[in-house]
């Protein structure tokens, strides 16, 4: 194994769990999340030798992952392969009913809106940073975010949220 490959393996091991969680939120499915993450890491490997030593590799992987998710979703839809895969890991388990409602609501969002929500509220990025990751204007992020939140509020029984202060 070359030193470049060894560095890549170390990066994969360090980045795996964190980005698998991100992929899980984006896909809503454990197996699709692993597939998405693996595809993204393969893409990273293809460019591994070209990546700058000063690159923020985690930020780069996040960007590839998010954009890969959007294109994978598009491709799957075109190929009619969006069969609902039973997801044992996310069927319930120890999470609250409200978290499950969030999961279901997220799944109902278009992939870009889902990405905006996850990047803003899970990765805690600013609107400007989200725009950079998605390669779009801040205005687009704002509008997608507003639409997504409106749907989430509706889907998550807004009164519970709004009256709980």
């Amino acid at each position: 194994m070359t030193s470049a490959d060894a560095a890549y393996v170390a990066f994969v091991e360090a980045a795996w769990q964190r980005h698998l969680r991100l992929a899980l939120l984006l896909t809503g499915d454990r197996w699709q999340a692993e597939e998405l993450l693996q595809d993204s890491l393969v893409r990273i490997y293809e460019r591994w030798r070209r990546l700058s030593r000063t690159d923020d590799l985690n930020a780069y992987l996040r960007k590839v992952l998010v954009n890969n998710h959007t294109s994978l979703w598009r491709r799957r839809r075109r190929e009619s392969l969006v069969a609902e895969v039973p997801d044992a890991a996310a069927q319930g388990g120890d999470v609250s009913a409200e978290a499950l409602a969030v999961r279901d609501a997220l799944r109902s969002l278009p992939p870009r809106q889902r990405a905006v929500v996850v990047l803003r509220h899970y990765e805690d990025l600013t609107e400007s940073q989200v725009a950079q990751v998605l390669g779009c204007a801040i205005g687009t992020v704002k509008s997608q975010h507003a639409k997504a939140l409106a749907k989430l509020r509706h889907a998550m029984s807004e009164p519970v949220f709004e009256t709980s202060r």
């Binding site: 890549y8 994969v12 795996w16 899980l24 939120l25 393969v42 609250s96 509220h121 899970y122």
Partner: peptide, 29 residues
């Protein structure tokens, strides 16, 4: 919303990229 997203993400069982996974990725790459 942020709390629930972290709860969902945290509900995923721990999973590590084993050596075999990394080697498979390298091969695919």
């Amino acid at each position: 919303l942020s709390h629930r997203l972290h709860e969902l993400a945290g509900s995923a069982p721990d999973s590590a990229a084993g050596d075999a996974t990394a080697r498979t990725l390298i091969q695919r790459g």
